[in-house]
Nucleic acid binder design. Sequence first.
DNA 1: GATGAATGAGCTTTCATTCAT
DNA 2: CATGAATGAAAGCTCATTCAT
Lengths: 230, 230, 230, 230
Amino acid sequence: MAQSDTVTRILDTAEVLFAERGFAETSLRTITSKAKVNLAAVNYHFGSKKALIQAVFARYLDPFTQRFHTALDELEAHHAGKVIPLDELLETMAATVLAVPAERNSLQVFMRLLGLAYSQAQGHLRRYIQRDYGDVFTRFTELVRQATPELPDAERFWRLHFMLGTVIFTLSGLEALRDIAEQDYHEQVSVKDLVRRLRPVVVAAMNAPLPDQMQNEGLHKDFHAHSETQ
Amino acid sequence: MAQSDTVTRILDTAEVLFAERGFAETSLRTITSKAKVNLAAVNYHFGSKKALIQAVFARYLDPFTQRFHTALDELEAHHAGKVIPLDELLETMAATVLAVPAERNSLQVFMRLLGLAYSQAQGHLRRYIQRDYGDVFTRFTELVRQATPELPDAERFWRLHFMLGTVIFTLSGLEALRDIAEQDYHEQVSVKDLVRRLRPVVVAAMNAPLPDQMQNEGLHKDFHAHSETQ
Amino acid sequence: MAQSDTVTRILDTAEVLFAERGFAETSLRTITSKAKVNLAAVNYHFGSKKALIQAVFARYLDPFTQRFHTALDELEAHHAGKVIPLDELLETMAATVLAVPAERNSLQVFMRLLGLAYSQAQGHLRRYIQRDYGDVFTRFTELVRQATPELPDAERFWRLHFMLGTVIFTLSGLEALRDIAEQDYHEQVSVKDLVRRLRPVVVAAMNAPLPDQMQNEGLHKDFHAHSETQ
Amino acid sequence: MAQSDTVTRILDTAEVLFAERGFAETSLRTITSKAKVNLAAVNYHFGSKKALIQAVFARYLDPFTQRFHTALDELEAHHAGKVIPLDELLETMAATVLAVPAERNSLQVFMRLLGLAYSQAQGHLRRYIQRDYGDVFTRFTELVRQATPELPDAERFWRLHFMLGTVIFTLSGLEALRDIAEQDYHEQVSVKDLVRRLRPVVVAAMNAPLPDQMQNEGLHKDFHAHSETQ
DNA sequence: GATGAATGAGCTTTCATTCAT
DNA sequence: CATGAATGAAAGCTCATTCAT
């Protein structure tokens, strides 16, 4: 068996299993036996389980960042120094996200990885992503800034993360939600359907009116009546 | 040591550790040694690790569902059979969510737990929550339906989950995001600030225009140009 | 709940479970939960699991030894100093064995317990039985000795145990064997049937000719041809 | 350390310990520490404790069935279609049983396993033996049938099991009985001695006169006087 | 007299990793 | 280059027993 074969099969199998069960719940034994490679092959080729996780991630993020940079280059060239409209930015990102995954399930893997990267407080994954792939996000954020000049910086930061949450949560939990939706509405949803549904929502969210200034807490009593300071 | 003491200490410790690391990554040994109780105490009081996880959820969800039912009762009484506006529904929910956690950090813990419950595809947790706590969500969803009569049912379902993703992602990753925001915008964000920011976004998202009908995939080529069927 | 009630229920439950699964495979938890008594009740009433096991035995062996002594008294009185024939001794024993158990199945339970007591080599049970109930067996053995004067002592010892094996094995595995017999021969067997079948076999076995003296191993080659020294 | 070494040492050690204490009373920790192999080695090589037990068994039964088939082949060839006398069948079986074990104690293991296989009502072991090794016993039983044409089928079935009980009980409890015999009769008994003693007993038992027909229960009152219906 | 709570020891099994070949 | 064997650590869980009330 050629090396590339072994490595690829490990990655393919790991990707699917990670998406199905999570990282801790997926053992190397399960991966290697399903991939029909030797148990020691993961450690041999990747060094450790953690490195395998990052390799699974890299196989996604490397082409993504490359394509995304290229797509943003084209977009900037096309608009020739003028501001790029928000919806075009979002559509470009969506198109790139959808363009990358070659196999079934892997978009979900990607989203789940992103979700974990954010939610795990200790976060070796977050640092790893920030370090290796932070540039393209910074570039994208800057373009969004130019497209929404009226938004205060902090507000934009939060709204981008609100939307990141929407997308990651929806796509990483896709399987579960799809089950429920199918059961309740007899509707077969594809990722494309979801992205179509997401577009107007994300645009509307980004363009929502600014919140009231919080001049005095007392004025918002019905909303925050029982909340404690956290 | 009184029973309630041991049980409470296990729950308190487990809650924090689960939220920090996830369920699989948190061993009973870690929980019990940190809680300074005997290792066998978890199995004695809860029966299994799985049952402990559900007990951690129950401690949040039981008072939540109770309060939420009460709050919805009051809201319905106040509106006397007429349709309750969407923003009042959302504010009621937000107020209830904020009212439940009694200790510091626990809103974040709760949200992180909810996020985990959704993202674990095999989902004994999801089934458990659906079974034991589904009623109040069904009731809430029905009220939202009356408040948004123009939305198709499926669309409403997805938008509610989009917003659920926004809220869960933001609040569960609060610590990490707070760090970044503070670093970049020198802004101290509280949960209240976030909720204030969330309100117009959520309302706008729910009221966003309907997506274009997907009559023909070819028509949306700039959006889906490179995507494969998933 | 009266004490006797608790004690009796523990004994009743333990007896059945021990017979079904063996001693080590039956936990106090299983016993107490099935008997619907407190987990600590066994230790409270009996002191330890080992003591419970012995109590289960005592409940059978105490009345057995008492009745057996009485029956042997009567037999000796009836024969007035003369030798008691072997078949009368055996029938007396059989009758006593059958007379003891009061409930359904409990003869089988008793036999299974006896079998366990013998087969467990470390044998605190064997010592316990020997110590507390050895007398009546010694008395019986002596009477058998008088009834079979031609048998060397060692030979008699072994043949008695051979027959003990026959009886214990057959009666303790009664359920399984009954299934097979019923399936193959469409025959409903009762304990009485078995005892009827056992009688001529046991008598013939006890009266079998003495084995050849083992003067030289080479003379018995067809029998021991391939055996090693053990 | 070569694989065969580790596997063999585990089997050798397990065999002895199982025979000494039983299965449930023998922990993998005890086995592996005594065999001086890693605790995980049992699960690595055998998969589970249950599989180890069956492997211990198989190491005995595989050569036994093979040899026994061969020996019966030879016996049939020698008698050229004519009926094989009972004592030759029994001696052939005894010789095969004794020929197999390579190490000390393993005959006892074998017998104890057989005893357990029969006495455990739920019986995963009995099913396993029946499935994998039933053929040779069926063949043997048929030859015994031809050798004892005068015996009713049911009677033969029961007598074979009576004798099976004798053999299993005696040999599986050998250690205990040996202790007693040594103490009482100052006699060193070997397995060979026992087999020599067993031969005439078994033959006599198989050839014992048929029991009285049970025409009327009342006629056997002295035998069953005190017995209840079971 | 009886029990719910608690405990320390030990169980089988699985883990990621390493090693010798 | 690759792998079967092996390993130390740790996992979840069950055990008989004890203790405070």
